[in-house]
Simulated scan of single mutants.
Amino acid sequence: MSETPGWSSPDQPQNQPPQYGQQPQYGQPQYGQQPPTGPSIKPGVIPLRPLAVGEIIDGAITTMRRYPKLIIGAAAVVAAVTQILGLLVQLPFLDDLTAVVTLDPNTTTQQEAMNQATDALVGFLSGSLISVVLLLLGTVFLSGFITVIVGHAVLGKPVTFAQAWEEFKPRLLPLLGATLLFGLITTVGLILCIVPGVWLWVMFGLVTPALVLERCGVSAAFGRSRKLVDGAWWRTFGILLLTVVIGAVIGWIVSLPFEAIGLAISGGFSNDPASVLNPAYLIFVTIGAIISSTITLPFSSAVTVLLYVDRRMRSEGMDIELQRAAGHGGI
């Protein structure tokens, strides 16, 4: 079974033999050793040295282009399943919502209107909760799966779906727990005040690659992310924010034509508020969401992994270890 290179942190024991399913260990970085001089070593999608912002973005795009069947294919399947199931969950409640939107105040008492609105809202929120759970599960799988692929792509190593899944499978449940904890922490921070929420979002933004590649526990992954971001919060914030903006723009450009077609078919341009609850409109919106998610989710996941690699190369000398793993300088 092919394995990604050893991503163990400097704090992990180096003399223990790897257990089954673990990545081989290459030892603690040699901080006094300098990388080979001359042209940058680039066996994979990035040069094995501290990266510029443009190189991180380009590396993410290159990874998607180099492994299209694995990354785009997996993203398309996950997006289609989660979005279609989410739509099917919402459809039974559309009639109730439409009835509430189109209520005639001249023939309906205030109490009747309140009761209808409450019933429709409860049903819609229940369906929305199921949709959010499906989206969460799909996002967790995709982010972890892509993390493994990017780990191979950094060294230009070939990887199959079976190999990537075999490496990621033991990390699925821990990653789900870490994702839920991350969402809870950042949500509480945002509720208390926007600034703490954003600070926590950036400080723990590298939890996924730390947990998957280093094969550590949930609490250790949060500690690793904090340690790697510490001292480079603003740079990390800028790259993550840029990734969000790029993803939002791409998603908007891709989904806009489908929304326009859906509005045209459902009569949305006639200012009818019930048109956005028309199944035709929602179907086209779902198609747009599937296509945009197929592009934006892998892109943001790949950027996060490469940002993690960059932080390790800058703060822990990981570039030397990666060069050794790539066959430059020996192990």
Rank of each mutant, 00 (worst) to 15 (best):
E3G: 00
P10V: 12
D11W: 10
D11M: 03
N15A: 14
P17W: 09
Y26E: 11
Y26W: 10
P29I: 11
P36G: 08
G44D: 15
G44E: 14
V45E: 10
I46C: 05
P50T: 14
T63D: 14
M64F: 08
R65A: 13
L70N: 09
A74T: 15
A74I: 04
V77L: 13
A80C: 05
V81R: 09
V81Q: 04
I84T: 14
G86S: 12
L87E: 02
F93E: 06
L94V: 13
A99D: 15
A99Y: 05
E112T: 10
S126N: 09
L129K: 04
V132D: 11
V132R: 10
V133K: 12
L136D: 02
S143I: 08
G144E: 04
T147V: 03
A153F: 07
K157Y: 05
P158I: 10
A162F: 06
W165T: 02
E167W: 05
K169I: 07
L172V: 11
L172H: 03
L175H: 00
L175K: 00
L181Q: 01
G183F: 14
G183C: 04
T187P: 02
V188N: 07
I191G: 09
L192A: 12
V195D: 00
M203N: 03
M203A: 13
L206M: 05
T208N: 10
P209D: 05
V212H: 07
S219P: 00
R224N: 03
L228T: 02
R235Q: 04
F237K: 00
F237S: 00
I239A: 02
T243P: 04
I246Y: 02
V249F: 05
S255N: 11
E259M: 11
L263H: 09
L263A: 14
S266G: 08
N271R: 13
P273F: 07
S275K: 08
V276D: 06
Y281N: 14
L282N: 13
F284L: 07
T286Q: 02
I287D: 01
S292E: 07
T294I: 04
I295F: 09
L297I: 14
S300K: 09
L307V: 00
L307W: 00
Y308G: 00
R311C: 00
M313V: 13
E321Q: 15
L322H: 08
